[in-house]
Nucleic acid binder design. Structure first.
Lengths: 341, 341
DNA sequence: ATGAAAGCGCTAACAT
DNA sequence: ATGTTAGCGCTTTCAT
């Protein structure tokens, strides 16, 4: 790369490099004539300050690192869009990496972010690297945890109360007469699934219903796993009457597979989804779902990281959103064939 | 941030900073004992090389800039995923920015990428900044243009031959008896839309059909515009019998609005889409569409940029994909009510 | 094989 | 208001 440096500008403009630096940093103490002249030369030379050098000196990169499991997941996609909107306004950029929910990869990604000296990290982590993240915070690097509640009360965080959401869903299904309710989740080691499970379990136990491990299904947040899960469910001897899907992708898979297998929702199974699908008006039945609030999470995460950068010593902030249950047509009243005693 | 530097490592390990540098760069001329010792200290101190300093020195950042119109567009999303896969394998990261298809914003984004000294830029540009991009290439910064054919033969590029795709679509519709065919596109100033139009126009002209400007609709690549477009189309005195949609989002909008308005596809209008929708098996009619080949574009773009970085002087490479027409049920034979003369 | 020292492009403290 | 200079953390040449 043919490099133009502050030096080239200085000599062409007949001033010192300090003056050029002052001009590009908008320092007050430069006479208008010199300021104009320098800007003119900058334009002529198409000079662009080297942010590596600036960053090395000032320890500020105007870059925010985002670590998520998968860029192409629509959930994260809309979160990222909102984060970008917020931070781009104030001159920050996004360094984005997919961790694939793999602990080792995630750790490496965090390390890369530190090596690149990002000004902050927004991470949707599995939860397994929380100690490491905690040490990062101690180093003075802002970290915002999204999409799950951190164990330690040491992070800024933004998330939906998933335990509550799942409680609400289960409760609603119970009110519709369902007793055998299956919950389909992502990997067991991802902490948000623990939250989901706990909300579900609490609700069932409050209603005095014994948990049936067969109905508590861990897998992956993918369309393929949604399909697989439904396939397994219909093979059960003692089938559930309702299914709770933990992600939009799983929900898609369940709907696709149901159609494939000729299974009717809600006649054969009731379904409640965590998050609504695209083009929902074109697909029947309309889903009963809880909002996943992607945009809200993204916007809040963007704000939090900017606040934390501005004010490193401020109080921790945890934004917890409650998501409403939206009623559609994918749940049907269940009437037991054998009368309840 | 509490900084550990190469200096701290050097003093704790009792060697010079040059030696530490050799160790972290895997230079050959370090004795195994010293190498081990240094690595041990690096581990103890949790030292991470400052990539800003490395970059300043070596002019390599291991960062690729990606400039697209909108991260949350599913088309770009899958492209980015594939790019990331390719480049992450070899230790690169992605700096991603949404340009909103705005020429000024795009120019600013390019500038930011240069200031951050990315090792290369992958851009889906409006086409309006091509001269600027060209000067970037002259500076020695690799640029890959995706999703459209560059004007100048000066860039590596990856794109689908959209003129051909549109020609094929129009040709197919003609073969089904349609004569009044509307094409719904994104903004006029985006060059890929010019390609689309030219393929469409060539086909119509070859068939000796006069172009009707009312049927050539420019707008935005959004669901909302798809809805609007359909609304306008049904109000036309002399309606088209077939519609070509240029993007998945537009197609969604058209389908949603058709349902809303009680319009049947393909009975009232035939529809061909550039790109297939999600959950297509759940939505009827199944679409007749051309593949948009997102994954192929992304993977190729990732490879091209790595090649260009490795070999700056190599021959230009333009990968042009041809997309097949996939037949569904959204096109119906059109039989004119008044016999053709 | 190892170390000393210059320098990458910039900022900021200090001097004028 | 402007210039001189040290130094950010690293790589690399040149000595040894």
């Amino acid at each position: 790369m043919i490099k133009k440096t502050i030096k080239d500008v200085a000599s062409k403009a007949g001033v010192s490099i300090a003056t050029v630096s002052r001009v590009i940093n908008d320092a007050s103490n430069v006479t208008p004539e010199i300021r104009n002249k320098v800007w003119k030369v900058i334009g002529e030379l198409d000079f662009r300050p080297n942010q590596l050098a600036q960053g090395l000196k000032s320890d500020v990169t105007h870059t925010i690192g985002v670590i998520i499991s998968d860029i192409s997941n629509p959930f994260f996609m809309s979160i990222i869009r909102e984060i970008e909107k917020k931070i781009n306004e104030v001159g920050y950029n996004l360094l984005i990496v997919s961790s694939a929910d793999d602990q080792e990869k995630e750790r490496k990604d965090i390390k890369t972010m530190l090596e690149k000296r990002v000004d902050g990290i927004i991470i949707s982590s599995t939860g397994q690297n929380e100690d490491y993240l905690s040490s990062i915070v101690d180093l003075g690097v802002p970290v915002i945890i999204i999409d799950r509640k951190p164990f330690k009360n040491k992070f800024d965080a933004v998330y939906v109360d998933k335990a509550l959401a799942m409680y609400d869903i289960a409760n609603y299904l119970l009110s519709k007469g369902h007793r055998r309710i299956s919950i389909v989740m992502g990997p067991r080691y991802i902490m948000s699934n623990f939250d989901r499970f706990s909300g579900y379990a609490r609700c069932m136990q409050t209603a005095n219903i014994l948990l049936d491990n067969d109905l508590i299904i861990y897998g992956e947040f993918t369309e393929a796993f949604g399909q697989l899960a439904l396939n397994n469910i219909i093979k059960m001897a003692n089938r559930p009457t309702a299914i709770i899907s933990s992600s939009v992708q799983m929900t898609r898979g369940i709907l696709i597979e149901a159609k494939e297998l000729g299974i009717s929702i809600p006649d054969d199974f009731s379904l409640v989804s965590y998050g609504n699908i695209d083009m929902s008006t074109l697909i029947s039945p309309s889903l009963t779902y809880v909002e996943s609030l992607n945009e809200k999470i993204g916007a809040a995460a963007g704000e939090l990281i900017l606040n934390r950068i501005k004010n490193p010593k401020g109080n921790l902030e945890q934004k917890v959103f409650e998501s409403k249950l939206i009623l559609g047509d994918s749940v049907k009243e269940f009437v037991s064939k054998t009368p309840l005693k």
